[in-house]
Write a protein that binds this DNA or RNA. Sequence first.
DNA 1: CGACATGATTCTAT
DNA 2: ATAGAATCATGTCG
Length: 343
Amino acid sequence: MEDQARMMSGLVGLSGLSQADVGDHDAVRKQHSLGQPQQDIGDILQQIMAITDESLDEAQARKHALNCHRMKPALFSVLCEIKEKTVLSIRGIQDEDPPDPQIMRLDNMLLAEGVSGPEKGGASAAAAAAAAAAGGSPNDGSIEHSDYRAKLAQIRQIYHSELEKYEQACSEFTNHVMNLLREQSRTRPISPKEIERMVGIIHRKFSSIQMQLKQSTCEAVMILRSRFLDARRKRRNFNKQATEVLNEYFYSHLSNPYPSEEAKEELAKKCAITVSQVSNWLVTSGSGTRRTLGSSRKRPNLYAVKTAVDAASVSSQASQANSPATPNSGGYPAPCYTPDGRL
DNA sequence: CGACATGATTCTAT
DNA sequence: ATAGAATCATGTCG
């Protein structure tokens, strides 16, 4: 409202009309009806004030008429002048746009999971999957892994296509608004700064959509993880050779079944399993052995291992040892089952 | 299909 | 913090 008053006074100065003349609409109309040329300004103002009450078509026609009006450039420059002053006052309140911490968290997670960021799956993942499918042992978990990768790639793809859609929509809308503002800037003063600010506002509005997208993607990844990487659900028995190696180690180190990291790595490599699997195995087997002698729950097959170890000591090839599924009907060698006579 | 085997995880006592 | 026990969940075999 105050702007309007200032605008009026600006125009007054421009056109030479007195303040009283502009303020008094009846007087303006009277003067207009008298056909005095200076009354154009008052007339324009009237039309501008009334434009919002008109229908779209009418307004459009009126706009065009006003645009062609001979006083338009003068009016426009005054508006610009006024705008220049008012813009200075709003300049301070905007600017800072700290990145949303929530978005940052989501971004970090997506990056960590390999959903966003550089394409690192791609060919190598496909190759790994192919290798796993072709020759991988069914027990080494690589099939699950490749399955996981495939699903992750799927999520990744959906995420990117959605993000693309989002970005397209956002830029389309931004462009639309910018064009609108540019077009309007022919009739009212709009500084580039203002357009920039509007773009910022639009982006902020859109970022909530982006957040939703990222959030649901994160959720999908979490669900996928819990389903696929929870090895308990995807337990696979180790292959024969692996259990043999582990058993052999276990019984030759019964006195101290806590291998160093290097030793575990060695075992893991031999058995084609992970180090943590080796640890797990030792934990379960150890407690199982101590716990189950005499119970129905047999952990490592002592008889088989003993023979395996014996055989290994002769031929250094434990492969021809009795199968680990050796009959337990014969029972365990009872309390003194350790090769080194302990326990 | 049910019982057992077994790798992984969680709980507990030290 | 850690070892060991208990438990869980899935695999395997008859």
